[in-house]
Computed example of a mutant assay.
Amino acid sequence: MIEAAAGRLIDGYSIEITGKDIAALREAAPGIAPGTAVSVTFLATDTLDQRMAAAALVRELGFEPMPHLSARRIASSAELEAMVSRAASEAGAQRMFLVAGDPPVPAGPFGDTMALLKSGLFERNGIRTIGIAGHPEGHAVMDRTAVWQALKDKDAEIAARGMATLIVTQFGFDAAPFLTWLDELRGHGIDAPVRIGVPGPAGIKTLLRFAAHCGVGASASVMAKYGLSIGKLFGSAGPDRLIEALSDGLRPAHGDVRLHFYPFGGVGKTMTWINDYLAATDAARRR
């Protein structure tokens, strides 16, 4: 049964696109709520011009752009300055999302998110909110103690520079790790708003491919909770069960929690699912 509370969790959602998704974003735009935060990922295969064009379109369409930066892929301080200043001037960006990135060896002087923050470029260019990553299912190269310390350090550095922190998590298929992580997050004294990463509707093979790439748990038992069978690789699924389980488990002590959609099956398909789900939950509220 669809719960009205699940609809409230989706209210204020954010969504992610790549620099190549301009046409898809234009097509889906009428179904996206005005002011929605739209992240523009930092893919190695996208050029800076592609990312900036996508971010500028997000602003033009009436949404809030949140360009990503990948520290270890940035070759120089001049390149970082160009990225931040162009995001601010061309897209009116007031928020950016920072990650260390996958390369084991940095292309330039920035080895991690903290190095980007300490450049001072964000506050100087009018950035008000810095997004950082949350890892409810653990980090590929850091133990839990180090992960929590890094998160606290980044949150403190962002605040010291007069900006706000927003935490966006990896996507997942099981509500339990998210809820446990939220308990720990608030227990560590971090009260920043959180956006829980959930997959948009997609084919089973696509979901499993992204899970393997991102180190997300996708065992047979976890996927069964999500409503999928690993033994049946045809068909697709949306995050209905995951969202309802999250909604059931959230408590006031968890603070400001919303959803961030990763549109693995396409931006249009994800927006159709969101709007259909919101319409159904709105009807449930009125009953």
Rank of each mutant, 00 (worst) to 15 (best):
G203K: 01
S14D: 12
G108D: 08
W148E: 05
L179P: 04
S89I: 01
V216D: 00
G19A: 05
L246F: 11
A164R: 08
A284H: 10
G92Y: 03
V99L: 14
H68E: 09
M142A: 15
V267H: 01
T272Q: 15
A78R: 14
G172M: 02
E60M: 10
L69D: 02
T206W: 10
M223H: 09
D153H: 07
V257P: 01
A283Y: 10
V147W: 03
P30W: 07
G92F: 10
A146N: 13
G197S: 09
A71M: 11
A237D: 01
E157P: 11
P34D: 06
L179M: 04
R51V: 09
E16A: 10
P239Q: 07
Y262T: 05
P103S: 13
H260N: 08
A212Y: 01
A6P: 01
L61N: 02
R251C: 07
W148F: 10
L43F: 14
A224G: 02
I158Y: 05
Q94D: 00
L182G: 01
G268P: 04
C214S: 15
M271R: 10
G200Q: 00
A150D: 12
R258N: 13
A53W: 01
S85L: 07
V194K: 03
L233P: 06
L121G: 10
G120R: 12
A55N: 03
M142I: 11
F234L: 11
G31I: 07
G187W: 06
R124K: 15
A29V: 13
R209T: 15
T18N: 08
R195Q: 14
F173L: 03
K118Y: 10
A164F: 00
R258A: 12
I158Q: 00
P263T: 06
Y262M: 08
M142Y: 13
I130F: 04
K154R: 15
V216G: 00
A211V: 05
R285K: 15
G126A: 06
A176D: 14
D174Q: 11
D112M: 08
K225D: 08
V38N: 02
L278R: 14
A164P: 03
P104F: 07
I158E: 04
A164N: 13
L182T: 00
R124F: 05
V257H: 02
W273K: 02
P201M: 03
A54E: 00
S14G: 09
S221N: 09
M83C: 06
L185Q: 06
I22S: 08
I10Y: 07
M223D: 12
E60I: 00
A29T: 13
V257T: 11
L61A: 02
D143M: 07
D153M: 11
Y277I: 08
I204K: 14
L246P: 02
